[in-house]
């Protein structure tokens, strides 16, 4: 049992309901380890199956995004016995959330900058949806801005594909955007215009966007769960 021992010496960054995230060195490189620990409240056979499937799903979505040119962490190693994913640590980065909060506090002319950022997020998400990757947990905390080596324009990196899956349905893409809209507007007050900009650039970047935006409007009226009445 090498991995659990290794993790006991690693630096714990975050603990959620589904997994723990650590920072550690892996083969000499700075890395992030995501460990899906066993859930004792589930039957052990079911738990193992679910956990394994989610680990696999996460890894697949990351690879699919990277193949399409959408920045996401490089996967270094997956241990299927302890359900751990070892991936690249995104160095020199801040979350989009912290970036927006910071920009709102120091409000001098940041409106333009925030709109540019929103456009970039919209384009990236359109590209991701065109690959039929549904992120499942879009929030501004799950997007990182990585600063370039020499003050180059920073790059948007998507992280935490733990709830992601593959689907071509406009419904699923619409819900993905709806989840982001809810999260975005509740974490960042008074950003309605910024989010509108995001949706506008999403719509402009993807040929398949009209159906998705139409679904988004439907979802707004009923919430993310589909009505099971009738």
């Amino acid at each position: 049992m090498a991995v659990p021992e290794f993790l006991s010496t690693a630096e714990l960054l975050k603990q959620g309901a589904e997994a723990r995230v650590y920072r550690a060195q892996f083969l000499g490189k700075p890395a992030i380890v995501k460990e899906r620990f066993p859930k004792r409240y589930r039957h052990s056979v079911l738990d193992e199956k679910l956990t394994h499937r989610r680990t696999v799903q996460e890894v697949r979505s990351i690879l699919r995004c990277r193949k399409a040119g959408i920045p996401a962490p490089v996967v270094y190693f997956v241990d299927y016995t302890s359900n751990c994913i070892f991936m690249e640590e995104i160095l020199r980065s801040t979350t989009v959330r912290d970036h927006i909060v910071g920009a709102q506090q120091s409000d001098a002319g940041n409106d333009v900058e925030l709109r540019l950022l929103a456009q970039r997020v919209g384009q990236t998400l359109a590209k991701m949806h065109d690959e039929d990757v549904i992120h499942g947990d879009l929030t501004t905390s799950n997007m990182l801005l990585r600063r370039g080596p020499q003050d180059k324009e920073s790059e948007l990196v998507l992280i935490d594909f733990g709830l992601s899956y593959i689907s071509a349905l406009p419904e699923d893409k619409g819900v993905d955007l709806y989840v982001l809209e809810k999260a975005f507007l509740s974490t960042h007050p008074n950003t309605e215009l910024v989010f509108e900009e995001l949706l506008k650039s999403y719509a402009a970047s993807s040929k398949r966007s009209p159906a998705v935006i139409k679904k988004l409007e439907e979802v707004r009226l009923r919430g993310r769960k589909r009505s099971m009445v009738g």
């Binding site: 696999v56 890894v59 697949r60 990351i62 690879l63 990277r66 490089v74 996967v75 270094y76 190693f77 997956v78 299927y80």
Partner: peptide, 10 residues
């Protein structure tokens, strides 16, 4: 490296 690490589940 991404491909090497994930080839068993693709």
């Amino acid at each position: 490296v991404s491909r090497m690490a994930t080839k068993d589940v693709l």
